[in-house]
Design a protein around this nucleic acid. Sequence first.
RNA 1: GCGGGUGUGGCGGAACUGGUAGACGCGCCAGACUCAAAAUCUGGUUCUCGCAAGGGAGUGGGGGUUCGAUUCCCUCCACCCGCACCA
Length: 854
Amino acid sequence: MTRYNFKTTEPKWQKIWDERKAFAASDDMSGPKYYVLEMFPYPSGRIHMGHLRNYTLGDVIARYKRAQGFNVLHPMGWDAFGLPAENAAIEQKSHPAKWTYSNIAAMREQLKSMGLSIDWSREFATCDPTYYVHEQSMFIDFLSAGLVYRQESDVNWDPVDHTVLANEQVIDGKGWRSGAVIERRRLAQWFLKITEYREELLDGLKSLDRWPSRVRLMQENWIGRSEGAYVTFSIVGRDASQDDGAVRVFTTRPDTLFGASFCGLAADHPLVATLPDEDGRIAAFVSECQQLGTSEEVIERAEKKGLDTGLRVAHPLSPEIELPIYIANFVLSGYGTGAIFGCPAHDQRDLDFARKYDLSVTPVVVPTDVDPADFRIGNEAYIGNGILANSEFLNGLDVATAKKQVIEKLEATGSGEGAITYRLRDWGISRQRYWGCPIPIIHCLSCGAVPVPETDLPVTLPDDIELGGAGNPLDTHPTWKHVACPDCGADGVRDTDTFDTFIDSSWYFARFCSPNAEIPVVRNAADYWLPVDQYVGGIEHAILHLLYSRFYVRAMKASGHVGIDEPFAGLFTQGMVNHVTYRDSDGNWVQPSELVEDGDKLLSSVSDLPVTMGRIEKMSKSKRNVIDPSEVISAFGADTARWFILSDSPPERDMEWTDAGAQGAFRFVNRVHRVVENALQKLPQPGTPEPQDIAEGALVLRRETHRTINDVTIAIERFHFNGAVARLHEFTNFVHGYGEFDWALREALEALVQLMGPMMPHLAEELWSALGHSEILVESNWPRANDQLLAVKSVTFAVQVNGKLRGTIDFTDEVDNTAVEEAARKIPNVKKALGETSPRRVIVVPNKLINFVL
RNA sequence: GCGGGUGUGGCGGAACUGGUAGACGCGCCAGACUCAAAAUCUGGUUCUCGCAAGGGAGUGGGGGUUCGAUUCCCUCCACCCGCACCA
């Protein structure tokens, strides 16, 4: 018997699959389809463990569904535009396209070595003009559908490099390359009206029952719908009919209006600029607020601070009450109106603020079981439900009714109205960068922004560019942007921005349905294949990519490109791949490959210093705890890598990559090969009919086989791949003990090989062929469990006294409750525990357990 | 700060709708084979008391519901993730 040689076997089967086009999705659209998609990779140059995990998970599903008889679409492409290519090009004095395409070639080879069941004939890269031409034409479609507009918006501007920076390129307020202090600049940019679909996007989440609930929740929070009211406070001593005569606030708690003790303005609220500021105190406070940063986290965590503007507003419903206006650092300018009224008794931030500035705290909602006269607010705001008090006409009402009535009153007096606001803002898609899809617009002095005519598409990127200089290469290119206006023929200028790369990934799944079509999407192909039945990817895309894509298909539907609302019917979010970290005694990170054993100590081969093991962390270059999947594949084979990544950890959770685990998987690969090879001579020919008489021992094996088929099938359906792996281990151990019962043994081994096929496709193919099959495994059908063999024959009852286990009894056939009780009482241990007393109750759970309650 | 998640042997983890906690793997221990090692095979492995039969404790801590709780409820602790344009 020969040892299994993955080095020759794996490429052999990859070649055979390739030659047979085994994974090409069929054009015959009559049968049931299944579209499996993993998030396509950014071509960084090498695959990492995250890819290995992602594509293994997707491949298990794809292979399983194919065996179940589905017409499976499982494509692969490249999210090929983006900033890293530009950075690499600058560093290597090369061109982003060259870098990108050579990375694609390298990564394609690596992915192929994993043995994925991918239809490579549909591959494309988003940086290819044959892809992005459709993006440009759809942008023009969206423009005519009224889903696009242009507006000034803030960007991070690097005054030294004359360039716009992404947020991640701004470190401590300075440009990452130039080190210059970053300015906020307003540039005219294109926006997609995602807010037009906010209700639908929110509503649609309810239908996505095969999405993780936390992703739905994150999107829900992101959209941030809140019901409340606008309330206008007129400024004492100013003309309320003028813009600067009143403060308009948004509140979700209009019921607490009588508990208001101040108004707060965001630092960049328009009113702030109109305030007299002789001593510069306001300017100083505003700049302090702006330095705080803009993220919600920072603002919410910061100490609540304010500055009294000296202005007073009148309470809209009792004008005799006057409230101070503060500029407050915890008021967000981008949300609501950028102004609030503060009700300290019922909002923690407002309470912290009121205590600091000694403002009044009047409770207006009192818990039902407390006398209003006794209700005091300490250091915690009361945000619960209750009955209104100290609130004139609202007194005695519950919160919901009070909200309704106060809104009616505000509307009647013209000082406010009920409203719904959202946190979601429109999607700014202009990027002042080279390596992206050019925005197909020509700016003309007399005609304005004119779309490039369909016949002139694509607008391609110029190749002769200078990267790394000052400014955007498209803008500084001598000729590229100068073109005639398509409408009037006068001198025009191209839009020199490119699309946000999230646009590229917002419709690629639709393109895979008809990847070579002259139009973006062929309707009947899209109608058949979409939506994606199972999408697999990282949780890091929970909001942006997934929300943009959900919006994008709605926009595509509005312009007739597709007929669906939701792009991804099922979503699976995988966990990260972690690894222990090592540091030497100087604190330098040490790679696993640099470790040397010295007795029971570890040394670094680089520094010769002792090494200690640190935390288990996400693989990252900076912590030097990266394991290269390609090295694993060349050392142990793809099947081992796949098997290990599927075993142990549930796929949605973070997993730890360990060398020992990989070794264990490798041992199992060889063990399965050995177990099957050893049995081969004992087996009857494939296809031998089931014998009439079957020995009791063979029946036991058959029952185990069919239970395994059942368990593994259910485990795969539920994405419990670690459970499927464990079950196959168990079954292999079981089969290994059998040396006879040849017909049943063949049945068992065939099931084993088929069940492990989605996970270890090469070994499974090899053994399937060794078992004498002429057709390849991927063309065989998934095994079916025989219900008769699944039926429970023997059962074990747990016997408890007062919930404590005192013994077990086995029955070879079904029994009734009295028989169980009778048998249970005979167990010596039980007898002892029961003593002379008769139990108060006897609880019997069929086929499970009997419990005597004393 | 707000929102969400996780917590089970030495380790990764299993346990379907409340029903024998620790499947399966790693590691470790013992044995077989071997001149020896590796590989392989067999058995054991939650802690604790006990020679044993058997008992006690045990799923982050505390409390509750129940005949019975890893599972449901309350509360506390620890760690992790998200919170605006980065792929």
